Simulated assay, not measured.
Amino acid sequence: MRGSLLDAKWEMISSNLDGNIWEPGILSNGKLYNPYFPVYRELYEELPETGKMSIYERVKIEMAGKTPGA
């Protein structure tokens, strides 16, 4: 992500949820990007634009011995 943005650099940013937690981010042209959000989203959130369930949900279903969509 950083390589595809102009003049991008890594920044440590205080978390919005807890000011004692610092998170890495990418700053480019005055905008802040979270390079980990796409990964977190794929792992934990349902993807309505594709109709796919998250990897986390698929693993839970497989561990329970059920077939997705059944």
Rank of each mutant, 00 (worst) to 15 (best):
M63A: 09
G69W: 03
L43S: 04
G51E: 13
A70Q: 04
E42P: 01
V39H: 05
L32H: 06
G51N: 14
W10L: 02
P38G: 06
E23H: 10
A70N: 02
N16P: 00
E62K: 15
P38E: 01
G25V: 04
F37Y: 05
L43F: 13
M1C: 12
V39E: 01
L32Q: 10
F37A: 04
I26M: 15
I21Q: 10
E46R: 08
E62G: 13
S4A: 12
N20T: 02
E46D: 13
D7T: 07
N16M: 01
S4K: 14
L5T: 12
A64K: 13
M1P: 09
P38N: 04
Y36R: 05
S14L: 08
F37G: 04
R58I: 00
N20E: 13
L27K: 01
E23I: 11
K52T: 14
E62I: 07
G25R: 03
Y56R: 15
P48W: 12
V59T: 05
P35V: 01
V39G: 03
M1F: 10
D7S: 13
E11Y: 11
A8H: 02
G30W: 00
K60A: 10
P35L: 01
S4G: 13
L27S: 07
N34I: 09
I13F: 08
S54V: 01
K52Y: 09
A70I: 05
I21T: 03
V39A: 04
I13R: 08
W10E: 06
I26A: 15
S14Q: 11
Y56Q: 15
G25A: 13
Y36V: 04
L17I: 04
R2Q: 09
M1A: 11
L6R: 08
S4E: 12
V39F: 07
S14W: 02
I55P: 01
S54P: 06
E49F: 12
T50V: 08
Y36P: 00
G65N: 04
E45D: 14
V59I: 12
E11W: 08
L17R: 05
E45T: 05
A70W: 10
F37H: 03
E42S: 12
K9C: 12
N29G: 11
M53Q: 14
E62A: 15
Y40V: 01
A70P: 00
Y44C: 03
I26G: 15
L17M: 04
E45F: 14
E57G: 12
L17V: 03
E45K: 04
P38Q: 02
I61A: 04
G3S: 08
G25I: 03
L47N: 14
L6E: 09
P35E: 00
Y44F: 10
G25C: 03
L17D: 13
L6N: 05
F37D: 11
E23Q: 12
L43Y: 10
E45R: 08
L27C: 07
N16W: 00
